[in-house]
Design a protein around this nucleic acid. Structure first.
Length: 423
RNA sequence: GGAGAGAUGGGUGAGUGGCUGAAACCAGCAGUUUGCUAAACUGCCGUACCUCUAAAGGGUACCGGGGGUUCGAAUCCCCCUCUCUCCGCCA
């Protein structure tokens, strides 16, 4: 959530930022927010005065009662009735205004960082770099959804039977490969200084709200209604929320956590032709890295995370490219996002395997995640996260890119993790 | 699922209607003392909003959340949530 003080003091920049993010009616909605804020503060000030008077009276009455002056106390009491009325009225107005203000604020997305390119669609994303060469596969090369059948390593039919579409069963060397990748990713994160955590994969409403999945994107999460818990769409949610409502001592920064979790996404409405096989699933595995950093150092941290993710892709010997997402393609909560895409050679397309973002204070404001700065003032921290990495599309690319008539040759780095070097 | 207990500041923990935003202790910060360390002593030490300001200051709200009683509530009443203990069930 954007900070109301920032909207107040840097109104024009905020509007410009919202427009860059392709947000409609930015000026009108910001004006509405400011109007609500203005009215709220005016009434709050009045209310505070009334309360101050009421508190003073109560103290006086207390004094009179003690000294036995009943009549005097009664006289003062008669004055309090009107104050109470006013206060009640103020309170009603205030809670209604606050509700409207909150609702209006929550609808505003984060504003983008200056380096974010203009644009509305994925075509406007900026290719920052490409790494590795695209393999030249023979004509007979198979897409991964054929390969997994050929080698009997992932079974969609079976997942269909026990759950539904988008919930595959990993079998044999396919299951082992999953486990190998998870261990590899976690080990690399540990080496890079991330403390490993294993969080719950069901979260409560407050957590969904804290990282910005609620209220706007509740349709994307599976909802366990009996207990009002949500299945996490990413480990970002539980891990970042570990620090909700905290004031972090400065010397503990940056906080670096990594965690493996399954992720669940309903992907409502996005089922289509290009989501075959592992390209899009309802349940998938992912290792996530999260950093919480001081504002002045958060862009350093972002680069560091990007480098870490690229290092993984290099070790997996996959051709990849890094995109800087344009304003219109970025997520609601993000100030800047790098997407890492690997080339899946049989499908002949780039697949997003990581998204690495700085949210600046947008999440921290909702989370009330703060620290005491150098000047001793309590202020909001910056939150960042990135996939390091999401498994299914990595698997797809490994399978497709490394297929040979003799089998699928796994990248060197996975051999010891798998216990075999070829599928 | 049944029965009971509880939720107070970074921590422990007092506080059952009136200068209590909250004792005390611990931790933390700044000093004094000190050959060094330790100890002792003094002061400071919650958050948010508003107001004022050079700074200080002032006001309001907050003792799990919401509502109520009262001139006045951390303290009394109601509802909700969560935690703990015992029993049951169980990986």
């Amino acid at each position: 959530m954007l900070q109301i003080a920032v909207i107040r003091e840097q109104t024009d920049q905020v509007i410009a930022g919202l427009l860059k993010k392709n947000y409609k009616n930015a000026a009108a909605e910001v004006a509405a927010v400011l109007d609500l804020d203005q009215r709220r503060r005016a009434i709050q000030a009045e209310h505070d005065e009334v309360q101050a008077r009421a508190n003073a009276l109560a103290r006086e009455i207390g004094g009179l009662m003690k000294s036995g002056d009943k009549a005097g106390a009664e006289t003062l009491k008669s004055e309090t009735a009107e104050l109470k009325n006013k206060a009640k009225q103020h309170q009603e107005e205030l809670s209604s205004l606050e509700e409207s203000l909150q609702a209006a604020l929550v609808k505003l997305p984060n504003t983008p960082h200056a380096s974010v390119p203009e644009g509305k669609t994925p075509e406007d994303n900026e290719v920052v770099l490409e790494h590795g060469s695209i393999p030249n596969l023979p004509e007979a090369a198979l897409p991964h959804w054929e390969l997994i059948k050929k080698y009997d390593i992932i079974d969609f039919e079976l997942g269909n039977k026990i759950t539904g579409a988008g919930f595959p069963v990993y079998k044999n060397k396919g299951a082992r490969l999953q486990r190998a990748l998870i261990n590899f990713f976690l080990d690399e994160a540990t080496k890079a200084g991330y403390a490993e955590v294993q969080p719950p994969i069901l979260v409560n409403e407050a957590s969904g709200y804290g990282t910005g999945q609620l209220p706007d994107k509740d349709g994307q999460m599976y909802h366990a209604t009996a207990d009002n818990y949500y299945l996490i769409p990413t480990a970002e949610v539980p891990i970042t929320n570990m620090y909700r409502d905290e004031i972090i001592p400065r010397e503990q920064l940056p906080i670096k956590n990594a965690g493996y979790t399954p992720c669940f996404r309903r992907e409502a409405g996005s089922w289509g032709a290009d989501v075959r096989g592992l390209n899009r699933l309802h349940q998938f595995d992912k290792v996530e890295i999260v950093q919480i950093q001081e504002p002045e150092k958060s862009y350093e941290a972002l680069e560091q995370m990007s480098q870490h993710i690229q290092g993984l892709l290099q070790k997996l010997e996959l051709p990849y490219r890094v995109l800087r997402l344009c304003g219109g393609d970025m997520s609601f909560t993000s100030a800047i996002t790098y997407d890492m895409e690997v080339y899946s050679a049989a499908q002949k397309r780039w697949l997003e395997v990581s998204s690495c973002s700085n949210f600046e204070t947008y999440q921290a404001n909702r989370l009330k995640l703060r620290y005491k700065g150098e000047n001793g003032k309590t202020q909001l921290l910056h939150t960042l996260n990135g996939s390091a990495l999401a498994l299914p599309r990595i698997v797809a690319a490994i399978l497709e890119n490394n297929q040979t008539p003799e089998g699928i040759n796994l990248p060197q780095v996975l051999h010891s993790y798998c216990g075999f070097d070829r599928i």
